[in-house]
Amino acid sequence: MTNALKKIYIGLIIFFLYAPIGTLMVLSFNASKARTKWGGFTFKWYAALFENEEILSALFNTMLIALLSALAATLIGTVACIAMTGMKRRTKSIMMGITNIPMLNAEIVTGISLMLLYISLGIKFGIGTILLSHITFNIPYVILSVMPRMKQLNPSTYEAALDLGASHTTAFFKVVLPDLTPGILSGFLMAFTMSLDDFIITHFTKGIGVDTLSTKIYTEVKKGIKPEMYALSTIIFVTVLALLLLVNLSPEKKEQK
């Protein structure tokens, strides 16, 4: 394949992935409520968004759950990775096997299995149950991000720190943790994103009256999506895009090249 063809192919796939996103962005400026009619350019949905308390509370729930579940999953997952390095091969592969279950299992099965668990334990459905479920499906993403870093670690540096008089704790925080940080960060980001985008598991584990953006959109599908929702998604998407560009174009990264 020639270079031009390759670029066209990559371009087409990226177009395929981002066409719906572009569509939603255009719709957020559409004065007409109909999805297929262009009624002129407007900012009114953006203004309406900040007065729509239902959407704002769903946004708050979504962000709260994403943040807390990603933090908890990062902590549990990273500790688990450290623990697994000291394990026998057999125990370790059993642990990794269990870690893979939420990744490979169908979301609908994970969702209903957790729902049945909460029902039989008598836990009240609400933010708490969503949070517990999100932590559960987020941990594997953290473990899979941190584990490769763990394998690359040079055990001699840790031992050297100990020889030089550092305590186990100091050696860990000063020597091991900095090496793991990139893996931990990408695991956290991955977990945050997955939580934010989840619908299926939230659908089965949420209580009545509690909504995240996903479940709110799902209930709106039949009545017609409120254009404020498009405005909100556009804001979120553009913010993330800008942040990512900023991080990736920062001077620090350039020096590494």
């Binding site: 996103i21 939603l24 934010l196 985008d197 959109i217 799902y218 998407f237």
Partner: peptide, 16 residues
């Protein structure tokens, strides 16, 4: 990155 735009909305966009 696309996952930052809600999965349901992206799928709905295909309807449009």
């Amino acid at each position: 990155l696309p996952m930052w735009m809600n999965f349901l909305l992206r799928t709905l966009a295909w309807q449009t």
